[in-house]
Amino acid sequence: MDNQELPPALEQALGGFGRYLEGERARSAHTLRAYLSDLRSLLEYAASEGIIELPGLELGTLRRWLGAQNQAGMSRSTLARRSATARSFTAWAMREDLIGTDPALRLRAPRREKSLPGVLQSQQLTRLLGGLAEAAAEGAPLPVRNRAMVELLYATGLRVGELAGMDVDDLNPDRRTLRVIGKGNKERTVPYGVPAAVAVDDWLRRGRPMLAKEHSGTALFLGSRGNRVDQRQVRAVVKDVFEALGDTSATGPHALRHSAATHLLDGGADLRAVQEILGHSSLATTQIYTHVSVDRLRKSYQQAHPRA
């Protein structure tokens, strides 16, 4: 759909806010496009109500704008983002003296829906990892690498970017721990088990030397040309093994992270220990996995108890 023509004052404000985001806030191109699309939607709605200058923008207009999108079926997460865009825009307009009062101060976004993460069952993981081990047994370097990457993702709950950024020196094979540089450049130490240790050792002995080049440096996992593996390649590997599994809707590495966290808690691990392993800055983020465990417990109870 083509953008509607805005009144000159509103178009000028849209451009000014875009320059602010791009310059002072150093937003990414993707975020910039999303924010400006949100703001254009708001200003087009305001124009449809006869508003031609920013001082005419009122709280009621903002609420009706969000309400119209809610009725159109827009997701809560998108509505929450658009509400945040509106608040950022009006706060900027106040600082620029384009408006005298901030109409978005009392604007409330709908709460984001908290979806429970998808979790692979233990028997699914046994089949998945068993298939990778069979492929690796033939000795080709990429299957050996793929097995090691997936074993390590599940064993540690690493984010895909953390896995791709690992160096050989980050491993401590004697203690079966690895050093991870996570979000916010925060460092943590994560343990891993014997199956992952076996797979990684196999990669280091048999697979990596076959792919390593002079430019490979100390990268733990390499692509077919000897470069450090990137996140896209890891995601493609995980997508393929999930598709081969056949009985899961999981598609990406984050499903392995979800599974690792949930299985740790199901096995009795302390919530704060799981927080440390996953690198969550807030315990509240980790607590979503307790909801997964309680939900599974409730389903098991309802299926098994005669008076559930």
Rank of each mutant, 00 (worst) to 15 (best):
Q303E: 13
V237G: 04
R82A: 00
Q123A: 12
L57M: 04
G73K: 04
L142T: 06
G268D: 06
E44N: 08
R205V: 15
P110R: 11
L152K: 00
V294L: 11
H280K: 14
G60K: 08
V238Q: 12
Q275L: 04
L129G: 07
R27P: 02
L128T: 13
G23R: 14
R87C: 10
L265N: 13
P110Y: 04
A304D: 02
T31R: 03
R95I: 13
E49H: 08
R64E: 14
L105R: 12
G207Y: 05
A250M: 07
L10H: 08
R175I: 11
A140D: 11
I51E: 08
V144K: 05
L42I: 08
A164I: 00
L283W: 14
E22K: 08
F242N: 01
T78F: 00
K213F: 00
L132F: 06
L10K: 04
S77G: 02
Y154M: 02
I181K: 03
T285Y: 05
L220D: 02
T177R: 02
E53L: 01
Y35A: 05
G56S: 06
Q124P: 11
L54Q: 05
A13W: 12
Q275D: 06
D230P: 10
V180G: 08
Q275M: 09
N227F: 09
L171W: 01
R33M: 04
A255D: 00
G184H: 08
A308Y: 07
Y192S: 10
R147C: 09
H291W: 07
V190E: 11
G100M: 00
L142I: 15
L158R: 09
A34M: 03
F17D: 00
G130N: 07
G56A: 05
S122M: 09
A260W: 03
A308G: 02
S259I: 03
R232P: 07
A13P: 12
P117Q: 12
S249K: 09
L57G: 05
L158N: 15
R106Y: 15
A104P: 03
A84N: 09
R147P: 00
A135L: 13
D270T: 01
A164N: 00
G252K: 04
P209G: 08
V119T: 12
R95G: 15
Y20W: 14
V198N: 13
D230G: 07
T290G: 15
S224G: 11
E22D: 09
Q124L: 12
A250S: 03
R298I: 06
R27Q: 07
A304N: 06
V150I: 15
E214W: 03
V238E: 14
L171M: 12
A72L: 01
A164W: 00
L6W: 05
V190F: 05
G18F: 06
G23C: 05
S293Q: 09
K239A: 02
Y289P: 03
R40N: 00
I52A: 14
M210G: 05
D167E: 10
G165I: 05
S28Q: 06
N185Y: 10
N70T: 06
V241A: 09
K239L: 11
R228M: 10
R40C: 04
D295S: 13
R159E: 05
G118V: 07
R208G: 01
T61G: 01
G223K: 02
E276V: 09
E134A: 15
L57Y: 04
H280Y: 12
